[in-house]
Design a protein around this nucleic acid. Structure first.
Lengths: 153, 153
DNA sequence: AAATAAACATTAGATATCTAATAGTCAGGT
DNA sequence: ACCTGACTATTAGATATCTAATGTTTATTT
């Protein structure tokens, strides 16, 4: 139990995340997009998500908020929603050609931002950081009261 | 092409920070507080901040948002604002006795949360994480621009 | 000294996010 | 078959945050 812990680790995490997110959002805005739209698109491209609830979960927002963003993106012609014929409760979300184009533009901006973020970091340090972040997330994810897991791949 | 970088490191950072912040906010709410109020109070206690602008900066919110929270907290009797006699543009913010009491309660909740967050982490790993976070923040903080004209897509 | 600019906080209005309630669809039990 | 409950997404209303504009005070310039 208690060690003479320093400043809360969550505090450093929150401050860093806010600063990084803000800089990233600025970079995406300059490329004609936004952070939520980017998160939605990259999740659509890189993950196999069955429905909007999982998509919202992957992004870290609530379903209602996702609906809001999808409305905007659909109005902008970036995505289309269509009912899954096999389960008409589900809306399948797909990128349009226009969405694909914007995705590539944002991917370029994101890559530049990511290079900037990685300045001075070795590959090993990045891997360490990713592993530490995964373990933090695991520690607050519900049942994680027992012991830290070794879920690095 | 620089390096065959994996998934954007900012993405992992954002996802983890959201999950951790949400769990922390829940813990603070159960203790009768909120995340913004906690951030304000701990910043008041542990930092020497000259004015509200610096306070907002330390927390990672805008001045207008800080004003909003201070209004609520002042209405709840947690803080008082008084004009600095030496520079009447400045509002000095101080915790009231009631604010001190709530601060201790939230500090207990925060400590519990922090212990949970540190589950499975050695002191050395925590130090490593803090250092990596600091470096990430530095990389997006203004002058830290590589200005590498690598136009990768 | 007066005028102008700068710094600080607040206010006003817009946008994003959340929770709770609602509507549509499917699965299971009787 | 039909009711009940669970699941999915949306809508409605509340809260939080942001940017831009404003008011007040201080600093600078002429």
């Amino acid at each position: 139990m208690p060690r003479p812990t320093g400043p809360p680790i969550g505090l450093a995490l929150t401050r860093t995340a806010k600063a990084v997110s803000r800089a990233f959002d600025d970079a995406l805005a300059a490329a004609g997009g936004s952070l939520p739209a980017w998160l939605i698109m990259i999740s659509l491209k890189t993950r196999s998500l069955g429905n909007q609830r999982e998509l919202a979960e992957a992004i870290g927002i609530r379903g209602a908020t996702l609906t809001h963003h999808l409305n905007t993106m659909e109005a902008d012609g970036l995505v289309i929603r269509r009912r899954d014929p096999a389960n008409r409760r589900i809306h399948q979300v797909e990128l349009t050609d226009r969405g694909e184009t914007l995705f590539r533009q944002l991917a370029a901006a994101a890559s530049t931002h990511d290079q900037r973020l990685r300045t001075g970091f070795s590959d090993e340090e990045i891997a360490t950081l990713e592993q530490l972040l995964r373990r933090l997330q695991h520690n607050v994810s519900g049942e994680a009261h027992d012991r830290a897991s070794r879920s690095d791949a």
